[in-house]
């Protein structure tokens, strides 16, 4: 196994109470994981699972409450400055300066890292080409589309040639086409040896991008592994999706037992052979409105592990 760039054990984050009546909030309740060089590693989980708090600790801007965390062999609290100098951070909200031009945004950020103006100018050309924004250098950010802004944010995060790139929900809010462009760019970065760490709500994104991922729920890691491993471990090969008129499916679901997951709008019947399961349903006298057999995916793993759908 290659070198571990990030090593976390028993990692916890508790935020103090906001006021006297409040109670402290434990966002991360003891997680352990390792990320290796060149890997794309994902944190998957619903809102409030502790993904963003974990990412903030990884970014060296939030001290763990308990546990140990080593990033690039350094302590991100004691050596925060040195750690951050080697990271790239892509926040979910872009946080670009909309008053400044595309190039000025890169310039400011480069200066933060102590690069000279000339070095940033040279680097900016390269990064804008990478982000496919060459002809936008002089444009104000307020005139860019959502997809362009996200690509600029990624370009900005690469200004210091980071060894690790942290991406918080990189494609949330983008249209399908913009997402595919972004995935392709991220895939290229990975090919170039940049270690990617991302959080996402999207299963297709996790399957596309992540070599390994962990599913987080309520501040803990429910399980981790490659997408294929997780699917093999937690779900069957196929899934039969059954839809019924409103109100009927819950009762039917209970009758069918363990292998069936009851969702608000449908039943998921986990089976190695979906057609066979459908035949069995027909035998039992079940008459769904629609029936669909498909291969099991990460979303099914997620449902099994957290007992709820991602869109919560």
């Amino acid at each position: 196994m290659s070198e571990a760039l990030i090593e976390a054990t028993g990692l916890e984050k508790t935020y103090p109470a906001r006021n006297r009546q409040g109670t402290p909030f434990r966002a991360v309740a003891g997680v352990a994981f390792r990320v290796h060089r060149g890997e794309a590693f994902g944190f998957l989980g619903p809102n409030g699972a502790g993904k963003s708090s974990t990412m903030r600790m990884l970014a060296g801007v939030s001290a763990p409450t308990a546990g140990t965390l080593r990033i690039l062999g350094l302590d991100p609290v004691a050596d925060g400055r040195r750690v951050r100098a080697r990271l790239g951070v892509v926040p979910q909200d872009d946080s670009l300066d909309t008053q400044l031009t595309v190039e000025e945004n890169l310039l400011v950020y480069g200066l933060y890292f102590g690069l000279s103006r000339r070095a940033v100018r040279t680097k900016a050309g390269e990064l804008l080409a990478f982000a496919r924004l060459e002809d936008k250098a002089g444009e104000r950010v307020e005139n860019l589309s959502g997809g362009m802004r996200r690509r600029l944010t990624i370009a900005r995060a690469l200004i210091n040639d980071p060894e690790i790139l942290l991406l918080d929900e990189p494609t949330t809010g983008l249209d399908p086409q913009a997402r595919h462009v972004l995935w392709e760019r991220l895939f290229r970065l990975k090919q170039d040896g940049v270690t990617l760490i991302l959080t996402t709500h999207y299963m297709d994104e996790a399957e596309q991008l992540c070599d390994r991922l962990v599913v987080m729920d309520k501040g803990l890691i429910a399980d981790g592994g490659s997408p294929r491993e997780l699917i093999e471990r937690h779900v069957t090969r196929e899934v039969l999706e059954l839809r019924f008129p409103p109100g009927e499916h819950e009762k039917i679901g209970r009758e069918l037992g363990e292998q069936v997951e009851v969702l608000p709008d449908r039943l998921l019947w986990y089976a190695d052979d979906g057609e066979q399961a459908l035949a069995r349903a027909t035998e039992l006298g079940i008459r769904p409105l629609t029936a669909l057999v498909r291969r099991a995916g990460l979303e099914d793993v997620f449902l099994r592990l957290t007992g709820r759908s991602l869109t919560d």
Binding site: A59, V61, P91, S95, D97
Partner: peptide, 14 residues
Amino acid sequence: RERIYPTAAATPLE
């Protein structure tokens, strides 16, 4: 709103 500080905080600046 503008997140100027958090952006700078992600860099070597303290």
